[in-house]
């Protein structure tokens, strides 16, 4: 269980890093300031949600691997 918590922690740190590096640079231009800001914000939000989904899928696979013995017992 400690290993699983440790892996979750590292995944949060790594996921946060990827999110900051990949998402914070996104900007849109050409539709007017407010629309640009809204579009960029929505795109960032969609990418962030996709990251969360990927994070959950990875955790699910890790869970099955780490706790396989206990789950099937």
């Amino acid at each position: 269980m400690y290993v699983f918590i440790g892996i979750m922690w590292l995944l949060i740190l790594a996921g946060g890093g990827i999110l900051v590096v990949a998402v914070s640079k996104i900007s849109i231009s050409g539709y007017g300031n407010e629309i640009d800001f809204l579009f960029a914000s929505v795109i960032k939000a969609v990418i962030a949600i996709l990251f969360v989904i990927v994070w959950i899928v990875i955790l699910n696979k890790l869970k099955n691997r780490i706790f396989q013995k206990q789950i099937t017992s």
Partner: peptide, 11 residues
């Protein structure tokens, strides 16, 4: 986020 900084996502 730690180490990498912040990300602004108002939506």
């Amino acid at each position: 986020f730690p180490i990498f900084g912040s990300v602004k996502i108002p939506a």
